[in-house]
Structure formats: structure tokens, C-alpha cells
Design a protein around this nucleic acid. Structure first.
Lengths: 201, 201, 201, 201
DNA sequence: CATGAATGAGTTTTCATTCAT
DNA sequence: TATGAATGAAAACTCATTCAT
């Protein structure tokens, strides 16, 4: 049996939030490999053992962190998209909001673009599960575009989605690696223009 | 004394190659974090200590591995590109060869797309240095396309390059995560079509 | 990150004492180079990792050991000296107590006379810092003897101190190397007589 | 069977000398623990393997070094002592020459006073064997002094010898640790005066 | 609920020595 | 004699997790 497997973690509570915020801060500052549980606990103002009342294990902090942050991230984009009518606007909105949300939270950007990717394959798979929600959202936009006759019906939706996500993700990663020295969201129109052309008839 | 200060690693020799091939195999099979130096040595058929006659330390094996493999990878693509005349063909060739080379070497694909990314930031930076050669190659194609009047002169070359690389990279990573269950190079035309549209006037 | 930077070693506690006693015993029995941390931990009845809650690193065990033992060693001699009136008696007391304390603790004698001297220069310097307290004590006695007109005022105090310490130390080391086959403290009168003559007018 | 035990080392030859000189230099410069066989071989201008044609193992280099150097050291003192008539002069000569020879060879002084003492007990024992020749010489002087009625006949010769050697040794060690910042041989008269008083009737 | 002292498994790297040439 | 490439044993230290209080 894997350690801690049969522990029941509380999914809510003030400390739950504290610990997640502490994890983002500590990981962004110190890097994934120097972010010991004890450091996160200290930053969160709780004892080491308390972490394990709220999370099954260290990996669970990271997955939960990603779930919480990504959940809101997707929710916000979904909400905004609902209000837009044209497919072109929807695509621009998706790109802009993706870039905006990460530009608004440098620490989170470092964590999602660099640090969390240093995790092992198993954790990466669980992170990808969370990411699926976002990828579905992209699919929805692409499918709608095809349905509305704006995007090419010959598109391989899977490949198209990989292009959209791969492009935005690469743009963000480059921005993080360049230490946020320029405006990220300002790149949205340029990215949008290219992606729109790529997808259009 | 700084580690390895007075040791000179031999950059060539049969064992040098053996160790690198062993590293690719072991890492692809066991994952980065379960690939102890002793495992690599055993696979290479040399003693643990022999590793350190050829590499400064464990990280150096990984960087060297990437340098060796990526060096040839870029060289091959560069050579082929020189023979092509049309810009469309050049772009297709670049995509196809990128996909082909990784499809031809599943173990290497696993290592470059998943395992090497688990390394720490410092190693990642050294890997990025090596990658620059490939990114420059992409830039060359884009700039040539613009010059020849085929690609839009309004392109932000940096963003365009991030789209090209980000898309292909994402396509490969998805293929690896799906455990190579479909032909990767078969996706080249689809990817090419979209990227071409994205870049064109 | 510098080793041990953010770790705070507890300088007190029952386990702190246990570990130091275990270190003396293990080093005396097995020799410095065969006294692995794990062996000391086992002897102390704690886990390997526990050592590092109380000591920064292995070297720190040795320095602490010497500080603790030497601290008491010096204190005892200091206390006794205060009670003596004649300078001759003071010198005899210093010699006797030095010999007695080491004869009373064979393991400690082995560690201080032989094993700790195998340490590297850096550690030796830290040990010498601790030793300074004892050397100052010797100086005090010599200076008092001069002041009282019993010791020659032409004495070079530094050389005189080196003679006193060098002689006693050599006597103890020989006793340890001869595996404690004779009474050490019984040599005190003989040593005292010679040193007294050497220092006197 | 201990490694290398049944090898026959050549005790002479130009390279034998080269290696010993190289060892003194390397150990004095780098310290005992950073003086790898390969470093000594390089300094001596021979291959690593060649060392083992002249010495049984690394320890044997050190013992041989000590034997060679100490042998000459003792011989010189012995020769000079033979020429002196008075016991006082003999003692002064012994002290002066001891100090002089080490002052003349700083590297050797570092090696004998500090570095070689970091070796393990076994090696220390072999070194002590070599030292015996010197200790016997001291004994001879003391016994002669007693016989001539100058030194007290109540002297415990063993203790007296430990005082003479312990004092001189401590004086040298302090000089080495103070990085030879003062003249060592200049201390001879002061040391001589004290030792003479200590031994005399 | 919360604490934090204690646990102990796990891995890179060095370097004395060998031996085929 | 001489070489130097290859060997492989050996040990300090970290940190996620537990559990008695």
C-alpha cells in the first residue's frame, strides 16, 4: 500500500486555502525541488503535520493547487465566452484571457509553466486530467467555428486543438523564461491573427 | 574544491556513445527519477566509475545526450532543407522530419518530450541553449517565406516561431503520452496545412 | 543552497547528550575513519536522520563533542585551581587533573589523543579554538608564578606554555598508545618535578 | 589478503626519489586528504601505475617518505652530536638542529607536523617505529647527562624523553600553525634553557 | 484539530589499485 | 619498465510522512 493512501483529506477550510497559496508562493520563489513540505507549512503558518490533515501527500498539494487554480481559470473563460457571439471574438477572448490570467499572477505562471512540469510522469498525468477541461473548451470553440462555417471542415479537431494550446502555451512559457520582461497580453492580437488564419477556411 | 574541477571528461570514444545510448534506453524505460547512474552504467556495460571518465556528473550525461541527439537532428533537417526550393516544401519538410525522427526513435521521444523536462531549471536552461539552434532554423524558414512574399510581412517572427515549435512539440508530446498508438508522421500534412495558412498572407 | 543553511541544530536535549556519548564510544572503538554516522546513530539508539536534528553535519558532532568534554575538563581544573594557594600546588593540580580526567575516561582519551587528530585542518582549527581556553589557563598559572617570584621572569611565556602542554600531551599520548598499561596519574609527580624545575628561577 | 601485499617494491631508483619529493610537495600544498595518488604521480612526472612499481601502496609512499626524511634528519643530528663534548652543548645542538632542519624545509614541516598526523592509526604506528630512532637518540643524551652527573639521577628517562620530544614537537607545530611567521631556530636557546633546568640536578 | 520531533530509505561520486598493452 | 583506462566499494545527508501528545 502506498503511504497515506487511506487518509481522508478535508477538501475545504481556511487552512486548505492558506496551504495552496503558500505552495504557489514557495514553489515560484524556490523552485519545485527546493520546495519542501516543511517550507510550505512554514509559509502557510501551520505545522508540518497539519498539511496532512488537508492533503493526502505532497503530490496532492500540487494537484489540488492546479485543480483549484485551473478550475477558476477555465470557469472565467467559459463565463466570458458565453457572452460573445462571433467565433472570432470567442477565439480572441480565449487567447486574451489565457494570457491575461497568467500575466496577472506571475507566481502562478512560473508554477504552471515551469515548476509543475518538473514533476514525475504520474503527477503529470493527473495534471493532464485537470487540463482536459480546458482542452474541451478549446474543442468547443473549434467545433462551433466549423459548424458556423468559419473554420475549415477539413480540420482535424485534435490537431487543431493541439495547435491552439501548443501555441499559447509556448508563448506563455517564453514569456516566463524571459522573466516577464514584456507585456504578455499584448501578444494576444498577433497570436489570434495567426491562429484564426490557421483554422479558417 | 569545486566538484569535478580537475577532471577532464573525454568527449569522444566508443564508451562515450555506449553510455549515451544506455542513458536514453534506461531513462525511457524507467523514467528520469528512477534512472540511477549505476543503472545506466550497467546497461552500458561499464563500471559506475567509468561514467565519470566521460561525463563530469550525472547532469552532464543528460546535457550531452541532448546535445548529441539534437545536434544530429538539426543537422539532418538543415541538410534536407537546403535541397528544397519552395518555401511550402521547406515547411513541410521541417515538420515531417521533426515528426519522423522522433517516431523513428520512441525511446528518444519519451526522453525529450517527457523525462528531460523533469530536470531542474538550470539543466533546462542548458537544454534550451541547445534548442536555440533549432529555433534559429525555424526563424530562417519564416524569414525566407516573408522575403519571398509568401508569408505575411506583418508576422511577428518570434511569435510565429513559437507557434511553429509549440504546435509541433505539442503534437509530439500528445503522441508520446498516448503511447505512440498512431502514426506521428502521418499528422504532418494536417499540421503543415494549418501552419502554412497561419503564416501566409 | 549552502548545506544546512536553513536547519537549526538544537544544542541541548537528552538526545544531544546521547549522541555525543555514542560518538565517543564508537570512535574510540572503531577509529575515526570507521565511525559512520549510521554507526553512531545506532549506538545512540536514534535514527540516522535524528543526528541531523541536533548536529549540522558529521564534523559538527566532533567539534561539539570536543567542546562539551573540553569545556567541563577546563572548568573542573579552573575550579580546583582557585582553591589552591601555592603556585607549586597549582601546577601539580593542573598536571594531575589533566592526567586523571583522561585516565578516568579511556575512550575519551583515545578520541582526543589519537582520533580527533586525524581530522582535516579546518576541523583541527576549530578544535584548537576550544583548546585555547585550556592554554590560557596554563598561561595564567605561569604568569602568576612569575609574578610571585617563583618562576623565572625571563621565561618566554609562549614557549613555557608550549613546554607544559607539549609535555603533558606527549605523556598522555604515549600512555594511550601503550594501551593504558600503566597508571597515568602516577606519572604526575615526576612530570610536575621536571616542569617545576624548568620554570623556576 | 590485503591488496598489494605481495608486491615487491623497488626501494631505489631516480623515480623513487622523484615520487617522494612529489609527495612532500603535493601534500604540503593540498593537504593530506586532497593528495590523491594521481596528483602525486603527475607532480612526479610518472604514470599512476608507475607509483606501484616503487611503492606497495599509497601508505607506503608516506611511510617511505618519513623514513627517508627522518633517517637523514636523525643521521645529521647524530653526526653533529658526536663532535660535541659537553652535555649542555649536545642538548642545545639537538634542539637547534631539530628546529633548523624543519625551518629549512617548510613543506616537510607541514607534512610531518600536520598532514601525516591525519593518517590512520595503523600508519601512525609505522611512523612511530621510524620515530623510535630519534627517541633513542634523545634517550642517549639524557642517559649520558645522568652518567656525567649533570642530569638528575632520579629522572624517569621515559618521562624525560617525552618532555624533550613533546616540547620541541609542540614548539614546531605551533610555528607551522602560525604559518612560519617567525624564526623557529631562534627559539632554541629559550627551549634549551628550560629543558636543561628541567633535567638538571 | 493541531503539533513537530522523530524516522529511515535511497543515491551520487571519489579514488586507490589493477592489468592489458 | 612504464603506461593510464578501467574498476567498484563505500558513506553522508535529505525530506516526505507518521504519531504521541
Amino acid at each position: 500500500m502506498v503511504k497515506g493512501e487511506n487518509r481522508v483529506a478535508k477538501r475545504r477550510g481556511q487552512k486548505y486555502e492558506q496551504i495552496i497559496e503558500a505552495a504557489v508562493k514557495v514553489i515560484a520563489q524556490n523552485g519545485y525541488h527546493h520546495s519542501q513540505v516543511s517550507k510550505i507549512a512554514k509559509e502557510a503558518g501551520v505545522a508540518d503535520g497539519t498539511i496532512y490533515l488537508y492533503f493526502k501527500n505532497k503530490e496532492d498539494i500540487l494537484v489540488s493547487l492546479f485543480q483549484e487554480k485551473m478550475g477558476r481559470f477555465i470557469q472565467k473563460i467559459e463565463d466570458e465566452l458565453a457572452g460573445e457571439t462571433s467565433i472570432e471574438e470567442k477565439l480572441l477572448l480565449l487567447i486574451s484571457m489565457h494570457l491575461q490570467q497568467l500575466e496577472d499572477n506571475h507566481a502562478l505562471a512560473i508554477v504552471t509553466q515551469l515548476e509543475l512540469r518538473q514533476s514525475n510522469i504520474e503527477l503529470r498525468n493527473r495534471i493532464n486530467e485537470v487540463l482536459k477541461g480546458y482542452l474541451k473548451l478549446i474543442d468547443t470553440v473549434i467545433l462551433l467555428g466549423i459548424k458556423e462555417g468559419i473554420f475549415s471542415e477539413e480540420l482535424d479537431v485534435r490537431i487543431a486543438r493541439q495547435m491552439v494550446f501548443g501555441t499559447i502555451d509556448e508563448v506563455v512559457t517564453n514569456w516566463v523564461m524571459k522573466e516577464h520582461r514584456y507585456s504578455l497580453v499584448a501578444l494576444a492580437p498577433s497570436v489570434h491573427k495567426m491562429l484564426l488564419k490557421a483554422l479558417s477556411k
